[in-house]
């Protein structure tokens, strides 16, 4: 019996060791954000004279407009995830419902393409836009439009497979009934399949939102003026060689930028795991 209790206790201790590891940077960032001295030097876990000075400083920094960076990130992520949901649900529908020539090849190509992370081709993408901007000024380097278009391209592949798999599980009888009643193909898709697929569409939206918000490389290549930065690019620029002088304000910005995503993530965590493992864990 004692042995059993000892085991129980040990279990909790090991778990707590890892929890300490998990929250270690978060706690210190919180402490730095509340510490008015704004420097790494002599940081204590519980800051003296704790205040919200760093948070106030965030909103009064003309050279580094944090609110604009956060807004840019949110705006780009919202647009990209909304359009991604529309485009991929459209693309997945015929793969699930129609039998046409080239269907298997199409699925295969999409599977093949999504093997290569889009950012691998960053050099080519950058040079492509360097050319495109001579003809289509709204897609110039340093525009949000260009970044959005890039993200859309990267989002289609894997998500089409995810949605197709889900559509396959929806029974066809409702659509058949609707078509007998005279609904067009598109109406069947729009009024029957989409409402039934709401849960996966919502999950896809959130996954895409988080992924877009977190993207750094491509945004850093494409955006080069402070008012256009996303939070990832802006924060990097702000802190990279200035840990000594900007630690507090940075930590405040980091917490503000992280909280919405973290909460969103924790709310939908069960969906995310299903989406991320992509059915590879077979039950």
């Amino acid at each position: 019996m004692i042995n059993y209790r000892l085991k129980r206790g040990l279990k909790h201790i090991v778990i707590w060791v890892f929890i300490m590891f998990a929250i270690f940077p978060i706690i210190w960032a919180l402490s730095a954000a509340l510490n008015p001295s704004n420097t790494l030097m002599g940081q204590r876990l519980i800051p003296e004279n704790a205040s919200l000075k760093n948070f106030v400083a965030l909103f009064n920094n003309k050279q580094h407009p944090f609110p604009i960076w956060i807004w840019n990130s949110v705006k780009i992520s919202l647009i990209v995830s909304l359009i991604t949901v529309i485009l991929t649900s459209l693309a997945a529908y015929p793969f699930s419902r129609f039998r046409f020539k080239g269907r298997r090849q199409g699925l295969f190509i999409i599977l093949l393409v999504q093997i290569f992370p889009q950012m691998l081709a960053m050099v080519a993408i950058y040079l492509l836009f360097l050319n495109i901007q001579n003809y289509i000024p709204i897609l110039s380097i340093n525009t949000h439009m260009a970044v959005i278009v890039i993200y859309l391209g990267g989002a289609v592949g894997i998500n089409t497979w995810l949605l197709k798999g889900y559509f396959d599980t929806i029974s066809r009888s409702l659509e058949e009934a609707a078509q007998i009643d005279g609904a067009t193909r598109f109406q069947a898709y729009y009024k029957i399949i989409l409402p039934l697929a709401k849960p996966i569409l919502a999950a896809l939206f959130v996954i895409q939102f988080i992924n877009t918000y977190n993207e750094y490389v491509l945004a850093s290549i494409m955006l080069n003026s402070s008012d256009k930065f996303t939070l990832a690019v802006g924060l990097q620029m702000f802190i990279s060689e200035n840990y000594g002088q900007r630690w507090g304000v940075f930590s405040a910005a980091a917490l503000l930028g992280a909280i919405p995503i973290t909460v969103l993530f924790l709310v939908v965590q069960d969906y995310l795991v299903t989406g991320l493992t992509g059915g590879a864990v077979k039950e």
């Binding site: 929890i19 270690f24 940077p25 790494l40 750094y216 990097q236 802190i239 840990y243 630690w247 992280a258």
Partner: peptide, 27 residues
């Protein structure tokens, strides 16, 4: 608590870690 590191945007936590690993004043 244990999945927190996964929930925080990666670019933010990496930049925080860099501050903690600072050689002169880092925690």
């Amino acid at each position: 608590l244990l999945i927190l590191p996964y929930a925080i945007p990666g670019f933010i936590s990496i930049l925080i870690w860099r501050g903690l690993f600072n050689e002169e004043f880092g925690v």
